[in-house]
Simulated scan of single mutants.
Amino acid sequence: MAKAKKTIETLLASKNAPIRSKPKSAATQKQVPDEPIILITNDDGISAPGLKALVEAVKDLGKIVVVAPDKPQSGMGHAITIGHPLRLHSANSFFDGVEAWQCSGTPVDCVKLAVDKVLHRKPDLCLSGVNHGANHSINVIYSGTMSAAVEAAIESIPSLGFSLLDYNIDADFTGAKKFARLLVQQLLSRKVIDKHLCLNVNIPSVDVNLIKGMKLCRQAYAKYEEDFDERKDPNGRKYFWLTGEFINFDKGKDTDVWALNNNFVSIVPVQFDLTDYKLKDKLRKILKTN
């Protein structure tokens, strides 16, 4: 088989656009029998310290393949690239002994390309993160980190999204690494994992010795009270800068916000089925529908 080139160009703008080359399949490389394949991605980009921390945390637990954006993609949500080419380049130099690729698209694009063009199969587990900053409560809606994990779950790949409540580039990922490894070990040790499993895992930004453990939680009703600060650029043209204050309206002690405020790692099971079943039942009594 011809040696794979280091660059792929997948032209999604045209159905008939050729793929110039394909990366060597991670699934066909030399691998320990029954060794799980773990896909790792993020939204902070291929060079983010959080991504490196996550790879280091689970490197010996399976065959690791990284496919991550070539630049930061925070706040992209579940966006996909349509009408523009996607480019995929080798990024092995970012990690020691790990197959890695950087993609010009969104975190969701990364998962889609990884399954179709890099792995040529569904991995056993998909990990996203570790994100720089919180993805608790309403943040899960906007998060590129969590959207990558949700995309994997849609594709029947059990997934976990990890976020550390610290935006600092020099953040200490010791706690995040410890609990990411623990969760992955626990999930891989089980013979049956729900194929649509998706866990939103947030880690408090405190010394690892101060973390009290993990809590299964529900998503808190908390959101940003937003404001757009009106400013002018050097040419006098008006522009707006999004600002806001995070407010927690939920005082429950079973929420992710409460857990994090009390130095617990929060774990919220999320799903891509957005149907409100309780409201659906109520509407049957109100609306005249078939």
Rank of each mutant, 00 (worst) to 15 (best):
L51G: 01
P234N: 15
P204V: 09
N262L: 05
I203R: 12
E230D: 13
D34M: 04
I193W: 00
I138P: 00
L39N: 00
K288D: 11
G213F: 03
L125N: 00
I46Y: 10
N263A: 11
T275P: 09
A114Q: 03
C126W: 00
G133Q: 05
I37Q: 00
H89R: 13
K63I: 00
N263R: 06
P85V: 15
P234G: 12
V98H: 06
H196R: 09
N42Q: 08
I286K: 14
Y142P: 01
Y277K: 13
V265A: 06
H136M: 13
E99V: 12
G83F: 05
L11M: 13
T41R: 04
S189R: 14
E9K: 15
E56H: 08
P72G: 06
V184W: 00
Y277L: 12
L197Q: 05
S163Q: 09
K212F: 06
K195T: 00
V140M: 04
T255M: 06
W101S: 02
P49Q: 10
I8W: 15
M1D: 09
V58E: 02
S266C: 11
S189Q: 15
D227Y: 14
C103T: 10
E9H: 13
T28S: 15
I64S: 03
E151Y: 04
L210H: 12
E151S: 11
H196L: 06
R121N: 04
M1V: 14
V270L: 03
E230M: 15
Q185V: 05
A17K: 09
N131F: 11
Q102K: 15
D172R: 07
R231A: 07
Y142F: 13
I80S: 10
F228D: 14
F264G: 07
I267Y: 07
N200A: 07
P36C: 05
D60T: 11
L287G: 05
K112Y: 08
T10S: 10
K52G: 05
D116Y: 07
L86F: 05
G144D: 02
V55G: 00
M146I: 07
G236A: 13
K24I: 14
A114E: 03
P269R: 07
I193V: 14
H78K: 10
Y239M: 10
V184N: 00
L183Y: 10
D109F: 03
H89Q: 12
K280I: 04
K285I: 11
L54C: 04
F162T: 04
T275F: 08
D70V: 11
Q219R: 08
E35P: 03
N248M: 10
A222H: 04
K278A: 12
E155M: 15
S156W: 07
L54G: 01
G105D: 02
H196P: 01
V265H: 07
P36G: 05
H78D: 14
S205I: 08
V201D: 01
K223M: 08
A91K: 05
R231G: 04
A220H: 03
G144N: 02
P72W: 04
R87K: 15
L279I: 13
N235C: 06
K15Q: 13
Y142S: 07
S25L: 15
D254E: 15
T106L: 02
V192D: 12
N135P: 02
L127N: 02
K288T: 12
L119N: 02
